[in-house]
Amino acid sequence: MSILIDQNTKVIVQGITGRDGSFHAKQMLDYGTKVVGGVTPGKGGQDVEGIPVFNSVREAKEKTGCTAAVIYVPARFAKDAILEDIAQGLGLVICITEGIPVLDMVEVKKALNNSSARLIGPNCPGLISPGKAKIGIMPGHIHRAGNIGVVSRSGTLTYEVVFNLTANGMGQSTCVGLGGDPIIGTRFVDVLKMFQEDPATRAIVMVGEIGGGDEQLAADFIKKYVTKPVAAFIAGRTAPAGRRMGHAGAIISSGDSTAETKMQMLRDAGVTVVDFPDELPQALMGRLK
């Protein structure tokens, strides 16, 4: 088993006629993902790598029965693309696009709150259940099927972590890239819950970063609910301090968001926190004995 996606997930690619969309549609298809259609308004009737292109998500859904969508459209059109998926009742939306205005995401968030759709991203590498399906931009070949769940805010740093896991014989159940934007559809806590409940996941790797409050919420959640071993790496211990946003940011945020604070909170929750990404496999092996 895996979480969120498997070999039966039918996915459409929004922005399939673009440079990134067409390239990754092919990559996903080659990996074995059921890419059943693409959407580019005004280009319906064409095909990309043999994948039929539709004018709208509604049409694509009617013709293909898709349940998931992945978005590669430019930032200024991304909000409408996500809202269209939610309106059409797709259960899973993965948004790769980066640079979406924050207030556009506030609108998206409101729509998500009123629906049962799950959004991964934006500004994320997507997700992969190795050997079954990948929806996103990660290099498929570094992954191996296995029982480690990986959840991360980063892109290439996740590849680094997965590469080390695979090299040490530790395959992955599912790897989820949450995305680096301030407002994202799915957070650490959501994925930790799924991994905790997934019988095919034995242990969890978390890759966090400085800034924001998600790792702290994750630490609270792990302490209360997660019984599986968790190992973590937090990037940005030596990054220069971020820019302050008036006083309002400090009033809203619950305490400080340095890497050290996050690492300490995770340790307090029983997570093994490592200094280098290549120490994660060893840390997990110690916990899985």
Binding site: T156, L157, I210, G236, R237, F276, P277
Partner: peptide, 17 residues
């Protein structure tokens, strides 16, 4: 010179450590 912000931060951390 690194590709990706997360890996770039991770690289800076490694250099420091």
């Amino acid at each position: 010179i690194v590709n990706g912000a997360g890996l770039a931060m991770g690289t800076m951390d490694a250099v420091n450590l």
